[in-house]
Design a protein around this nucleic acid. Sequence first.
DNA 1: TAACTCCCTGTATTATACTACAGGGTTCCG
DNA 2: CGGAACCCTGTAGTATAATACAGGGAGTTA
Lengths: 138, 138
Amino acid sequence: MCEQKYKTGELVALAEIGKETLRFYEKKGLLPKPSRTAGGYRIYTEKDLRRLLFIKNAKKLGLSLKEIGELLAIADGELVDCAEVRHIAQKRLDIINEQIDNLGKLKTILIDLINQCSKTNTINSCPIIDSLSKGVKK
Amino acid sequence: MCEQKYKTGELVALAEIGKETLRFYEKKGLLPKPSRTAGGYRIYTEKDLRRLLFIKNAKKLGLSLKEIGELLAIADGELVDCAEVRHIAQKRLDIINEQIDNLGKLKTILIDLINQCSKTNTINSCPIIDSLSKGVKK
DNA sequence: TAACTCCCTGTATTATACTACAGGGTTCCG
DNA sequence: CGGAACCCTGTAGTATAATACAGGGAGTTA
């Protein structure tokens, strides 16, 4: 029966974020407006902590706050249209595949550069500039 | 003997960027200050076009303008210290590997979500929230 | 009750990468 | 020479994601 309650300082310590960031997320609508003490202090629950950790992890995976907001809206049941969900997820998936592809190309270019560099020890012609001037598909 | 010369409008048309972006890059030091006509109009050369295309392609690969600037400095011979070059390249390579790794994880999560969605057609429990609340390594 | 820590609000600043004016000067065509 | 199209400068605004700070209130403990 005794659910854990946190004040701002306790929550930010547990989630390892700044207190300004917490308020920022609240203002952005990513976190619900918490209840308050008589003195006006915010009171958070376990649910808020989980939500905050979700935001943190999703960010780590490269999602923008806007996208995270959309996913949270789905989780909250505000957005129950399946087509909508699929659309968000698929759109992101396309971008991810493209990014993985691009990162692979950049990786090759950088490995070439590093090798080139260790061979000559001076750079007269630049392998990256050459590679990238020719263009990257898409 | 007749090298191609471009005015701002011609160059931005060829590179497919905005004219303000061109000035922005000049101010940032990514493009050298071009020579001018008697009337003060900027005159660009083929070399500038190649440089601009390099910036565009490097951006597509996810490099920041700051990193692009460092690579251009290398290409310009301003930075000929091999250790420095290797350092920039290796640092980026580490980030890339991590990003590829993270994107792969996100991809799995999203594919799960899409599948879940097409099975149930309604979302009662949210697979992404569940996945991400548990955390992502590193 | 003083002192101290924590919390409140609102506003301003940071960094990245542009994008959009306002108010002029230049070039070129007829 | 008139007018359109183009270019110049400087400043301001946009979006994203925070981060910092000023000025004040709340809660706790000696």
